[in-house]
């Protein structure tokens, strides 16, 4: 050590420097007087590092890594579960949709049939009513026609009697009636 510290003072002279280094070990690494010191502190440092690592650091980091691995595995499993559930739900939704559509079609068809039936009944009822009304009307018309013919006969007999009386003849009621009736048939 003494020669090493001296070398700083002699630094400006290369020749001296080299000469001195030639006489003493050039590398501090080969100065064996410091080996004991370095080895002692190195062993202490390594033992300290070993205890720090094996007692605290490594178990803790290992546990954290294992825990993370577990969490990731669990999360992936959960995600797969949820995915399966989503697929299931989609299938159920599709099925419900198809069912609802079929039901709706059923209801529409049913309603159509009901309406058709009601309509048919109403139409036939209306037809029957119309037929009844038409028959009644026909009867009324024939009645009216009959009564009209009767009236025409009466009026024709009366008129014929009046005309004969006005012309000064004596009208026999029976003859007139027969004549008018005969004429009206013709």
């Amino acid at each position: 050590m003494a020669t090493e510290t001296q070398s700083d003072g002699l630094a400006d002279a290369i020749g001296v420097d080299l000469a001195e280094h030639a006489s003493t070990p050039g590398m501090p690494q080969l100065d064996f007087s410091t080996w004991g010191n370095q080895i002692f502190w190195l062993i202490l440092a390594l033992i300290a590092t070993y205890f720090i690592l094996s007692r605290v650091a490594l178990p803790r980091i290992g546990a954290v890594l294992a825990e993370r691995q577990g969490t990731i595995t669990n999360d992936i499993a959960a995600a797969e579960d949820l995915k399966a559930k989503a697929v299931e739900a989609e299938a159920a939704y599709d099925k419900a949709l198809v069912d609802a559509r079929a039901e709706a079609q059923n209801i529409v068809a049913q309603a159509k049939a009901d309406i058709q039936a009601d309509l048919d009944v109403a139409i036939s009822k209306a037809d029957a009513e119309i037929a009844v009304k038409a028959a009644e009307s026909e009867k009324a018309i024939s009645d009216i026609r009959a009564s009209a013919v009767e009236n025409v006969k009466v009026v024709a007999k009366d008129t014929a009697k009046e005309i004969i009386a006005a012309m000064g003849g004596k009208a026999d009621a029976k003859t007139v009636t027969a004549a008018v009736t005969a004429r009206m048939k013709g």
Partner: peptide, 27 residues
């Protein structure tokens, strides 16, 4: 002074820092 086996040297100091750095990083 002389470097005895127990002397705290610059080497000792930087070894201690290395241990400290290990402690800081890992613990």
């Amino acid at each position: 002074g002389a470097v005895a086996w127990y002397t705290i040297t610059n080497s000792t100091f930087w070894m201690a820092l290395a241990v400290l750095a290990t402690f800081v990083i890992l613990v």
